[in-house]
């Protein structure tokens, strides 16, 4: 992957010079600073909303969940520790868990399944499709991450997509894709290893 000279890229979106870092904002949250939450919201609401939408496929429910998730970020900030990784990773983990819980609790699962099925029929590999959609203007980081993802064989992408964005177990993926359980496990292991290694290279390069 080519490194663009003079562009300070990171895995996380760029922050304006002089603006507080994500770690600074998390410290603000821990100290009860509502303005820090407002800044984190401005910085990451789009990413977290996209993640929620990818899980539940419903705009109104996604908005409600987004609000609940930022409230949970506020309430749980005291549990965040720098030793456990970056603030964005922590927020994404929290948002994903809530979105998958929300999907199941609200019994929207069947409806979302039907919508997903329809989308899958129209676009067999939605993740791949997103990766090549020319009309979308993407940030450098997103383009590079998608390059890593789209380098995986479609079957590995699909297995990871179902596990991460749908919260499916290996058995559920096997049943949904009519694939032997052992094959699903192999696809997940190989795909995740390639992604992990690819992202590590990306970080090293950046």
């Amino acid at each position: 992957m080519a490194k663009r000279p003079g562009r300070p890229l990171t895995m996380a979106p760029l922050v304006e010079p002089g603006a507080p870092s994500d770690f600074d904002l998390m410290k603000g949250l821990q100290a009860g600073d509502a303005d820090a939450l407002a800044q984190l919201y401005d910085r990451y609401n789009g990413i977290l909303k996209a993640l929620i939408l990818r899980v539940i496929h419903n705009e109104a429910e996604a908005d409600d969940l987004l609000q609940e998730i930022f409230m949970e970020i506020w309430n749980q900030a005291k549990n965040f520790s720098e030793q456990k990784g970056k603030p964005l990773g922590w927020m994404v983990t929290l948002a994903r868990r809530r979105a998958i819980d929300g999907l199941r609790k609200k019994q929207a699962y069947v409806r979302a399944e039907e919508r997903l099925q329809n989308e899958t029929e129209q676009q067999p590999e939605a993740w791949v499709h997103n990766a090549t959609e020319e009309e979308i203007v993407l940030s450098d980081t997103r383009v590079l991450i998608r390059k890593v993802i789209s380098s995986l064989p479609p079957a590995q992408q699909q297995a990871i997509d179902l596990a991460f964005f749908r919260g499916m177990s290996q058995r559920e993926i096997a049943a949904k894709t009519n694939t032997p359980l052992g094959t699903v496990k192999t696809r997940l292991e190989l795909g995740l290893k390639k992604l992990y290694d690819g992202l590590k290279d990306l970080k090293d390069e950046l």
């Binding site: 895995m11 990413i47 996209a50 993640l51 990784g85 970056k86 990773g89 983990t93 993407l138 970080k203």
Partner: peptide, 12 residues
């Protein structure tokens, strides 16, 4: 857990 961050950043 960086994988989580990357999956989220892969979305528009």
């Amino acid at each position: 857990y960086a994988l989580h961050e990357a999956f989220a950043l892969s979305l528009r």
